[in-house]
């Protein structure tokens, strides 16, 4: 069964249509990249999938592991195994990263009918996951994303993904604002999570990230539609030609 099946998806925000008929199927183990110019609807797609209430689906269907995703509230989607790494992770002063992670991990466990992790087990889990993302203890003690650099925020997103072990990871322009070192760490973190039963949807503006996270499929999104799909070589074509030929205007 497909991990994610998007059929003729139409969606918008505040009555403005943005997605105009998206079709996309992700099988377990696959990495799909969605590329497109600014304003093409890439972030709308990730917000719709994650269940942001401001984004309304007007037509079409999204199946996640065969279940109708729209039946689930945002937190239920996360508990069911969908993870969104934010383009702009939200700062939450007043809650430490550790406290937040524990609340998240145990919320997911509770949803799955598992016992909550106690303090010791939780710390063990953190220790096991933190090294790949080069997360220092100091970062864990600090308030969630508060005063984090751009790179720290994105590393923290992937670290959260590693802790929650989703079946589908959506990366919304995770590469934006990253220097090459931070980009490599993020890519290493994602690659470490690749497995035969886990899929990824990597949304990006640039080809650069895809040098490190090699996709199985690449889709070009323009004006709310997927206009071309292909293998990883499509990303390189885009790098050379830009989006202009689909966009009807200047691309990159």
């Amino acid at each position: 069964m497909a991990l994610l099946e998007i059929k003729d998806l139409h969606a918008g925000v505040e009555g403005i249509p943005i997605l105009k008929g998206i079709n996309l199927t992700i099988d377990p183990g696959e990495v799909h990249a969605v590329m497109g110019p600014n304003g093409s609807g890439k972030s709308t797609l990730s917000n719709v999938l994650a269940g942001h209430e401001a984004y309304k689906v007007t037509r079409g269907e999204i199946l996640f592991g065969g279940k109708d995703l729209q039946e689930l509230a945002a937190h239920e989607r996360a508990c069911a195994g969908l993870f969104l790494a934010f383009q702009y992770p939200v700062e939450i002063p007043g809650i430490s990263n550790m406290y937040f992670l524990k609340a998240a991990v145990n919320a997911v466990r509770e949803y799955r009918g598992e016992e909550p992790l106690d303090a010791m087990d939780f710390i063990e889990l953190v220790e096991a996951k933190k090294s790949v993302m080069k997360i220092r203890d100091e970062l864990l003690a600090r308030a969630v994303n508060s005063g984090f650099s751009g790179g720290e925020k994105k590393r923290n997103e992937i670290f959260q993904m590693a802790m929650l072990e989703p079946t589908l990871g959506i990366l919304d322009e995770t590469d934006s604002g990253l220097d090459i070192d931070a980009l490599k760490i993020v890519a290493d973190g994602v690659n470490a999570l690749r497995s035969p039963d886990r899929g990824f949807l990597v949304i990006t503006h640039y080809q650069r990230l895809l040098d490190y996270i090699i996709p199985d499929h690449v889709h070009v999104m323009v004006h709310g539609r997927i206009v071309k799909s292909g293998g990883k070589e499509l990303a390189l074509e885009l790098e050379d030609e830009g989006y202009a030929s689909w966009n009807g205007e200047e691309g990159l």
Partner: peptide, 24 residues
């Protein structure tokens, strides 16, 4: 929304953010 995407229900997210507000 950020908390919800991490599996935390809206009600619990409200409590957590309220707690965070007071924590200072």
């Amino acid at each position: 929304f950020y908390l919800q995407t991490r599996g935390i229900s809206r009600g619990r997210a409200r409590s957590l953010l309220t707690y965070a507000f007071a924590n200072e």
